[in-house]
């Protein structure tokens, strides 16, 4: 057998290390992915010992869009929720990471509390909580305080001021959802914090010597250096909000597919959902990546 050159050996080893994923991707990802596109164009019937497909043009899509009364509203609501939540999550987690990066007593404790939502993000518990009597009672008592900002009097007052109306309404809707936003920010805080800690202290040192104010340092150093991290976080947040177990559309697609309406229709909804995710991601990445500064 011919001996392989060193670079050939290296590339062979590379294939060997990544082989599990190559196999898995083809068998358990690419194949079902293609199948779901096919399924969405067919009527699927379970027969003895397997299933059969009957091609039916775009009937499944038409059914999902025009016959199903709930799909479209749930779909739009999900996308809208994502659009309002993601900027708030990014803003909050960036801010929280800045706070947690400072030196103060109890920093470790504060960090572990801020990351806690990551491990508690269970769809089942969230569902139970929403239906639970005691939780609702306690939450009602507790949110009387936070609902002050979103209360009718203050809203009416703020609306009279010369602040752009859309911006104000957005801020109010975000304030209303503060607990949800905080609980969806765990990983993003973690990623920002890792990014902040990778910034070389010498940059800040130099800025201080030059007499830059903290505000200037933030805009001239922190944000540009973190811009790839911001992009990664935006992408992560979008995916996370689309795939969240509490997401209404996710549940709806599942009930449709397995609850009698038909596998084909459920899969067609899934395909449309995927298309929406891709379009949103493509637009966001396209716009943001122009502003990203890579250091090397």
């Amino acid at each position: 057998m011919k001996r392989l050159s060193l670079s050939q050996q290296r590339s062979l080893t590379g294939y060997l290390f990544t082989l599990p994923f190559i196999i898995g991707f083809i068998l358990f990802f690419l194949a079902p992915f293609i199948q779901s596109v096919i399924f969405s164009l067919n009527h699927l019937r379970i027969v003895a010992g397997g299933y059969e497909l009957i091609y039916n043009h775009f009937e499944n899509f038409k059914h999902a869009l025009y016959v199903d009364t709930q799909f479209l509203p749930t779909f739009t609501q999900t996308v809208l929720n994502m659009i309002t939540d993601v900027p708030a999550i990014i803003f909050f987690s960036f801010f929280a990471a800045l706070l947690l990066n400072q030196k103060f007593r109890g920093r470790l404790l504060a960090r572990s509390i801020f990351f806690l939502p990551v491990i508690l993000s269970s769809g089942v518990i969230a569902g139970l909580e929403a239906a639970d009597y005691m939780s609702n009672l306690m939450r009602e008592q507790a949110t009387n305080a936070t609902s002050f900002l979103a209360g009718p009097t203050l809203t009416a007052f703020l609306l009279q001021m010369k602040i752009p109306r859309e911006l104000l309404l957005y801020v109010i809707s975000v304030v209303d959802r503060i607990p949800e936003i905080i609980r969806a920010s765990g990983i993003q805080i973690l990623i920002f914090l890792a990014g902040l800690q990778s910034i070389s202290p010498s940059l800040y040192e130099a800025a201080r010597v030059e007499g830059a104010s903290p505000w200037q340092t933030m805009w001239m150093i922190t944000i540009p250096v973190l811009s790839p991290t911001i992009l990664a976080n935006v992408v992560y947040s979008i995916i996370d909000s689309f795939l969240a177990p509490t997401n209404a559309l996710v549940t709806y697609i599942r009930t449709t597919a397995f609850g009698g309406a038909g596998f084909g229709i459920g899969t067609a909804m899934g395909v449309m959902y995927f298309a929406a995710v891709s379009v949103v991601l493509a637009i966001v990445v396209g716009v943001l990546s122009r502003h990203v500064v890579y250091q090397d």
């Binding site: 194949a31 079902p32 992915f33 199948q35 299933y51 795939l243 996710v250 597919a257 899934g270 991601l281």
Partner: peptide
């Protein structure tokens, strides 16, 4: 990471 598992739910289940 980008593909919602809901889209592939039916083929996966059947496979």
């Amino acid at each position: 990471l980008v593909v919602p598992p809901q889209m592939m739910m039916v083929p996966l289940y059947l496979n």
